[in-house]
Amino acid sequence: MLAIDQPFHADSQQAVDLVPSRYALRIGEIDAMVISDGVLPLPTATMATNADPADLANWLDHMFMPPDAFDWPLNVMVARSAKQTILIDAGLGGQFSGFPRAGQFPQRLASAGIPLESVTDVIITHMHMDHVGGLLVPGVKERLRKDVRIHVNATEVAFWTSPDFSRTVMPKPVPAVLRSTATSFYSEYRDRLHVFDDTKEVAPGVVVRHTGGHTPGHSVVDLISGGERLTFAGDAMFPVGFDHPEWHNGFEHDPEKSARVRIGLFRELAENRGLLVAAHLPFPSVGRVAVDGDVFRWVPVIWDY
Results as ranks from 00 to 15, higher is better:
M47W: 04
P284A: 12
Y305I: 07
A236M: 05
V202M: 09
V119C: 04
D235C: 11
P216E: 06
R108W: 06
F96P: 09
T183Y: 08
V137A: 06
H62D: 14
S285T: 08
P255F: 00
N75A: 04
A24M: 13
R262D: 06
S21A: 11
A236G: 04
S225G: 05
F70D: 00
N75S: 07
L25S: 12
G287C: 06
L230T: 09
N58V: 12
T231V: 13
H218C: 02
Y189H: 07
K83E: 15
G133F: 03
L116G: 13
V16M: 08
E117F: 09
V261N: 04
S97K: 15
A3I: 13
P245Q: 04
H62Q: 14
L276A: 01
T199E: 14
H218T: 06
G93N: 00
D17C: 09
V148R: 02
E256I: 08
G227I: 09
P171L: 08
M47P: 03
G226M: 01
G250I: 01
G91A: 02
A90L: 02
V140W: 10
V202Q: 07
E228Y: 13
W298I: 03
P20V: 08
L109Y: 01
G213R: 03
S258R: 00
I123L: 10
P7C: 06
G113S: 11
P173N: 11
K146G: 13
I302G: 04
I35M: 08
M65K: 14
G98F: 01
F64W: 07
L87P: 00
Y186A: 14
V177A: 07
M65E: 13
D89E: 05
V291D: 10
A3M: 13
V76A: 06
A24H: 11
E268C: 03
G91V: 03
M77D: 03
T168K: 12
L2W: 11
A32S: 08
I86W: 00
R262I: 04
F242R: 05
I30L: 07
R179Y: 07
A32N: 01
H128L: 11
W160Q: 01
T199Y: 11
S180M: 10
Q104W: 02
L18M: 10
S162M: 12
H151V: 13
M77S: 07
V119A: 02
G113Y: 13
